[in-house]
Nucleic acid binder design. Sequence first.
DNA 1: CTGAAAGCGCTTACAG
DNA 2: CTGAAAGCGCTTACAG
Lengths: 335, 335
Amino acid sequence: MAHRPRISDVAALAGVSPATVSRALSGSGLVRSDTLERIEQAILQLGYVPDGSARALASGRANVVGAIIPTLDNAIFARAAQGLQTTLAMSGYQLLIATHEYRPAAEHMLVKALLGHAIDGLILVGADHPSPVWELLAARQVPLLITWAMHPTQPSLAFDNKRIGRLAAEHLLGLGHRQMGVISGFLNHNDRARGRLEGFRDALSDSGVELSADCIIEQPFGFEGGRAGLDQLLRKDVLPTAIFCGNDVLSVGCLLEAKARGLDVPRQLSVVGCDNLPITAQIEPALTTIALPTYELGQQAAHTLLRWLDTGVAPESVYLPIELIVRGTTALPPE
Amino acid sequence: MAHRPRISDVAALAGVSPATVSRALSGSGLVRSDTLERIEQAILQLGYVPDGSARALASGRANVVGAIIPTLDNAIFARAAQGLQTTLAMSGYQLLIATHEYRPAAEHMLVKALLGHAIDGLILVGADHPSPVWELLAARQVPLLITWAMHPTQPSLAFDNKRIGRLAAEHLLGLGHRQMGVISGFLNHNDRARGRLEGFRDALSDSGVELSADCIIEQPFGFEGGRAGLDQLLRKDVLPTAIFCGNDVLSVGCLLEAKARGLDVPRQLSVVGCDNLPITAQIEPALTTIALPTYELGQQAAHTLLRWLDTGVAPESVYLPIELIVRGTTALPPE
DNA sequence: CTGAAAGCGCTTACAG
DNA sequence: CTGAAAGCGCTTACAG
């Protein structure tokens, strides 16, 4: 075959007009069944696959959703992407995905790039974005769903990051801890990390416990960050009896470092993480953490966005349920 | 503004023809600089973003690459996707990604879906695909790059999966092991897993050691699979002194289960994994594994495909370097 | 360096 | 249930 067959080739072979083939393709139901059959024959025989850009241009719908996430290198975002993609595919939509690695400038470029790429909707992580990003978004008017954090006006599928911090704090306070440390990812350009820290600090504060600034360590996400965070915390004058880690990559690193130093977790040091990564349930002692339904977030993001596209009415924002899971890394403080 | 601005709006505002705006946009260099400046002004003023589908339809290039991978829920594929996406973005390309979760039927559907979605190239994992997939691909004539395994004729960026198995076997044989077990992912529809097993078995066989079929356990990928695999291996009449795991999710699970049972690794049992996941270097004892440069595979896949699109000449297939990393989970066999 | 015109391959009112 | 025709918003020879 010389060329990729076009709709007119199919039409000619089936003895109908291109319009009819188009209707058959879209499953509109207004094609007689014998006609339909001839068309299907022709499609099979020619190996016809409709041209996506032509279809998108003519119909105004690309059947593509864009998503910009911080990274795929954290299982938490990878799982969400997986849930999103799988659910979209079930409705005939595909996923155009990009990662900015926590660089705001990169995010800006990617928003621009995706907006130029025929997408029906866009998904972003976090509610906090540089204003040029919002301007682009406003100009393009594409349905935009915020995830992972709550935006005051934009439809959001959020985790209550402050409550995550509160849950961790209340658990540790309840055990009797008073000296706490925090290992967080970089707070800049990360409203999720800021929210968790704020919630943690607020809850302590409500109980009359102050969290001094030098007990808050910012580290790059990664096991090494968790290890380095613990290292820094152990150099302070007053040692913490409990540590809250902003996510489980950090908490696993922190726990492993504690074990490597011969610290008895949880008897000498309690550790709380966040995410409920699979590995947290496997290591010994298993990590106390806050479970976030990230796969479900991806699924629900897909459903929400597709409904939005169908109905044209913007969805309500919602918080997804989160849950403290107490395992082996938290206990009463020493003494 | 009532409507999304079109290229003609920009042209009108800048006092030129749409053709000139188009040339300015494509950076062709054949637009006078003062004209260019007026056009850029107009673009900024209107917030113009070119329509992707129209551009793709008219030019025949979508600036999108499709990739179908087994899952994002394994860090190994997530990292490769990350390398791929990041590198593509640097050249103005975006990534349309889909996962089939090891279901051949899903892969078939996704190939079909992506081919209908205006892509310039396609990346697949593995050389082994059901024939309907190959037929679709042949009909559509899109540049296709195979990754992770070597295809006899199709351009491939491969790991030598047999050699992975051989490396593991030779290391264990060299230590003196003669009773071995294998924990693998499901072999069906997975040429990477089959290749690794085959290489492992061949190398043993070359040394006069036979690997009996009931020492080969297939498990779903996941920590639980590794744990269950060890459990099954420990029920055999002859206990293995060493286990080769098809990837590091399995090897970590296997190691953790061994520790939970009070087995002394490596003194009572040696374990070799594959992938070099970050966690393997962190746990105690650190895992002996075979390092696969998966991020680099993603990057190189992007470069290879883009060069193909540029030059029109199909690239050579290449094997990526792999390396045995000996850490704490392998030692001389007991006695 | 710039413009007028044709065309990319579909979809979708409109008419029957 | 089906067809003829216009149009989606760009790009790109062709001509100047």
